[in-house]
Amino acid sequence: MSKLKVEARDFNLYYGDFQALKNINFQAEPNTITAFIGPSGCGKSTFLRSFNRMNDLIVGVRTTGETTIDGVNVYDKSINVDELRKQVGMVFQKPNPFPKSIFENVAYGLRVNGVKDKTFIEEKVVSSLKQAALWEEVKDKLKKSALAISGGQQQRLCIARALAISPSIILMDEPASALDPISTAKIEDLVYELKKDYTIIIVTHNMQQAGRVSDRTAFFYMGDLVECDDTTTIFTNPKNIQTQNYITGRFG
């Protein structure tokens, strides 16, 4: 078995008195795509945000157990959250580019991390945009505002922005749910391409999307990780009846 990139051991998360995640045990190998599926409020997004501790921003969050990246517990006291977030790129449901130029959006992560070298920043911006399959569409308008491009392009810009800080993991929270089918297909193809260089975890409400892009699928329900297996197994022969009911659309 190859080395684990991401792991959770007996992980619990509470919003005040409410337990949002119950004793989660989860593993992901490097260069794989894992899809989190489950009905709204099942905890999949919460779990996703545990890997870069975005849950810390919410008042009253408490955790027990471990989530590790490359074997290091991200909830350890010695961890600097800002440093952690540089290793873990994140893409959100709604494209959220900054009201800056396209170039500055991608350069932002480097700038806030203290990179001053202009040529390095330029090279990184170009390579990130290329990696995000956006370069051809925006190369002539890098100085233009990021708010002027289409929603699908904005989302790919957000992916480029995340890639620029050279993370090893990319978390995606329903990255295509606000996009039209063509843009969605582009994002999905992109995600599939990015697998070569990154470990990707993607939350999706769209079952077909999970099938199309992921290697492994994890089904969450009411804060439990019900079943996690190869996507082909989940989609053809799930072990758990709840998983089967969910993916066949019989509940949720």
């Binding site: 921003l57 009201p99 806030v112 991390n113």
Partner: peptide
């Protein structure tokens, strides 16, 4: 200012001060 913009900045490893100064205030 939408929270999504702040969260986007935090997710890139920006501190709160950086987020306010570079993203939120210009808006």
């Amino acid at each position: 200012v939408e929270d999504s913009v702040r969260i986007g900045s935090y997710a890139l490893g920006a501190t709160k001060l950086q987020t306010i100064r570079r993203v939120v205030l210009p808006i």
